[in-house]
Computed example of a mutant assay.
Amino acid sequence: MTVKKTALAALTAAALTIPAAANAHFQLSYTPEVQIERPGDVPVKLIFWHPFENGHVMDMGEPLEFYMIHRGEKTDLMDTVAPITFQGADNSAAAFEASVPVKRAGDYVLVTVPAPYYEESEDIYIQQITKAYLNRGTLPTDWMEAQGLPTEIVPLNKPTNVIAGSTFSGVVLSNGEPVPGVEIEIEYMAAEPDMDANSTTEPTVSPMPGGAVVAVTDADGEFTFGIPKAGFWGFAALGSGPETEHEGKELSQDAVIWIRAYDLQ
């Protein structure tokens, strides 16, 4: 079992604020709707951004992999990936768009394996292996399954219809084993991308004072966070992956998951 920050292994997951993590990098795999009513190609934007702050956009290299899992079957979608320029509030950067063929009922797990990104201010590389979810017909098929990634967050609640005001739980895995004591940065997508203009929109809320919101996995690699608001929420397990070096420099190989929360009507 991979053990990081073992002094925290006995902690239950708790929401904390850490001023040093004021600007959380987050790999997006974004589509406005996750409940798909009709079969067809669903557009997706792949953006490396700070959506809570509506902040700086990072240049994304071409993804190493982009694929979907549906009913346990993997479909490579790299032939749908095309470069775009995404305009943030303060800068523009390289990003990508893709599409997902949604036909049968069930879950569609979208997996993005980005190229490592060099963060000059910290002199490290960051690679955020990201999962997002679509569903057609409300049929559960794949959401609760691990996908065999080097590191990933496996949801313990259905990620496509979390109730705002309830909680979301997940377990962090590295090479299939739970990771205790790992920090989970938590991001609200306050500014959602405009799919047609490839640009940011006006944020709906302001970021939290005191920096990024953080939870810590317990001895079983699990965390729980109360979801206060409807919308898209992202969770990034920092440095949870087995790879720690890239091109002679430190690599933070993170696991990211995006979920969608709704208000009860």
Rank of each mutant, 00 (worst) to 15 (best):
F48G: 10
E62K: 15
E97H: 10
G61C: 03
L64Q: 13
Q87L: 12
M58F: 14
Y117P: 00
L46D: 00
L46G: 02
S99V: 05
F86R: 02
M58K: 06
V34H: 13
T112M: 11
E37R: 14
L77T: 03
Y118P: 03
T112Q: 10
E37A: 15
D41K: 14
D59G: 01
E65Y: 09
R104F: 11
Y118S: 08
G55M: 00
M58V: 08
V109S: 02
V81M: 03
Y108G: 04
V57G: 05
F52R: 08
V57E: 12
P116L: 02
G72P: 01
D107Y: 03
E53I: 02
E62F: 13
M58I: 08
F48D: 09
A89H: 11
P43M: 06
I36Y: 10
A89K: 13
L77N: 06
F86A: 07
A105C: 09
N91Q: 06
H56T: 10
F96D: 03
F66K: 01
L110Q: 03
L64E: 14
K103M: 13
H70R: 04
H56V: 11
A105R: 13
N54A: 15
V109P: 01
Q87K: 15
T112C: 15
T112G: 04
A82N: 09
E73P: 02
M78N: 09
P101H: 07
V42C: 11
M60G: 03
T112P: 05
Y118L: 06
Y67C: 06
L110G: 07
D79W: 06
A82V: 08
P101W: 05
P116S: 07
V34N: 14
P51R: 02
P43T: 03
P43Q: 06
D90G: 11
P32Q: 09
T75V: 12
V100F: 08
F86M: 05
A105P: 07
L46N: 02
L64P: 02
D59Y: 03
L46T: 01
H50S: 08
E97G: 09
L110K: 04
D76P: 00
Y118W: 11
T75M: 11
L46V: 00
K103L: 13
V109T: 10
Y117T: 13
E53S: 13
G106D: 00
N54Y: 08
H56G: 04
V81I: 00
I69V: 15
V111F: 09
